[in-house]
Design a protein around this nucleic acid. Structure first.
Length: 393
DNA sequence: GGTACCTGGAT
DNA sequence: GATCCAGGTAC
């Protein structure tokens, strides 16, 4: 796709501010003539992440073609349309997408914005449409209605969750469920009716919950993710443990933090190789060297799906009759992590990873990570400006 | 039953 | 800031 003009970038900013998540496509002259557009990587990942369509699961050929309703916006009018998503029988079956009627509103090399709302694609010409004028117009128009509807829908769940949190907070301190480090999160999730789980999905209707005791300034967990064993020299957590572990009490352990700016006491560090788009973990033992890798794509996708929207909930820990209680007090609401910042923050040592591997006395290897964690000050760098809510009102 | 995630910490 | 750590579940 061509580089966006400043004007187009401003329009995207405005849409993003209104919580519209979108993907872009640039029809070519040939494409418009033949009614064909390549579903580029970013289009495919948008469709997949929004659970709209997965080309990887689609067979080649017109019999497997999928039709999805679409609305083309021209500003003050809409055109009812359909999208066809398919993989041709020829060659490798490179994913294609087409919106019927697009030729009427697009010239070659215009940038077309695509979002998904109300079970339909919402399609508009980003280059030609005066987005700002339409959104702020005092004259009602279908595009404005769409943006307002998206905005309201996107906020709905957050408002609902916020109301529930305020109710919990205003009931006063809640006794801790279990006597453990993790209870501040467990107790809140239980109060919200969320069962303990190991799901990679966010916790509450797409919103991830992260609780912490306000007395602590610990790094915060982003997610856990094992290396890409296929691409790595080492093939298991056990192999990492055997090379770098240490005896501690009855166990053989490797519990350590690995950073890009320092080598830890096991001689491990991280680095990013932007050319091959990988995060690489290295040992200073010459015979070992680089031993595991993660693709940046994988890590970015984990970040985007887990932290699409997050409530960072601050609690005060109060001892009542020797038992820990939690008074949940404040929420910081972040959205849409900036994945390019992830790489930068790794390189700055602000995002680090923890190995949490041990072999117990029975010889069993247990791995709880590796956990990607961020220092508190990194949160405002990883996310666009956030909102804060007081729960004690 | 092992692996890969979840929820979070301490000094 | 560095070193190291905890109790859980899904499949």
């Amino acid at each position: 796709m061509r580089k966006l003009t400043d004007e187009e970038q401003e329009k995207i900013k405005l849409l993003t501010k209104n919580q519209v998540s979108l993907t872009l496509i640039e029809p070519t002259e040939t494409g418009l003539k033949k009614s064909i557009m390549d579903a580029t990587g970013s289009v495919r990942s948008y469709l997949k992440s929004e659970n709209i369509h997965d080309y990887e699961l689609q067979n080649q050929g017109t019999e497997s073609k999928v039709m999805i309703p679409a609305t083309i916006h021209t500003g003050f009018k809409i055109i009812k349309s359909k999208a066809s998503l398919y993989r041709p029988s020829t060659k490798k079956g490179d994913p294609r997408i087409w919106f019927y009627g697009l030729t009427k509103v697009a010239d070659p090399n215009d940038i077309i914005g695509i979002t998904f709302y109300n079970d339909s694609f919402q399609v508009f010409n980003l280059t030609k449409l005066d987005i700002k004028e339409l959104i702020y117009s005092s004259i009602l128009n279908p595009f404005q209605e769409l943006i307002n509807a998206i905005n309201t829908t996107e906020n709905e769940v957050a408002f609902e969750l916020l109301a529930m949190l305020r109710k919990i907070a205003n009931n006063g301190p809640i006794p801790s469920m279990v006597d453990a480090d993790t209870s501040v999160g467990r107790t809140l999730e239980t109060a919200l009716g969320i069962d303990i789980n190991s799901s990679k999905q966010p916790d509450y209707k797409g919103i991830e919950l992260k609780s912490f005791r306000n007395s602590r300034t610990n790094r915060k967990s982003l997610f856990a993710q094992v290396p890409d064993w296929k691409l790595s020299k080492f093939k298991s957590s056990a192999e990492i443990l055997d090379n770098f572990g240490y005896e501690r009490d009855d166990d053989f352990k490797l519990y350590c933090t690995v950073s890009a700016i320092t080598r830890n006491s096991q001689g491990l560090n991280l680095r990013i190789d932007s050319d091959i788009k990988q995060l690489i973990e290295n040992s200073d033992k010459p015979e070992v060297g680089d031993f595991v890798v993660w693709t940046l794509d994988k890590l970015h996708n984990r970040l985007k799906s887990k932290h699409k929207e997050t409530f960072w909930v601050e609690a005060e820990s109060i001892k009542i009759d020797e038992r820990e209680h939690f008074q949940y007090k404040l929420v910081e609401h972040t959205k849409k992590p900036i994945t390019s910042q992830f790489d930068l923050l790794i390189e700055q040592g602000i995002i680090t990873l923890d190995h949490l591997i041990k072999r117990n006395s029975k010889g069993k290897v247990v791995e709880k990570g590796p956990l990607f964690k961020i220092k508190p000050k990194g949160i405002e760098l990883l996310f666009p400006p956030s909102e804060s809510y007081n729960l004690m009102t």
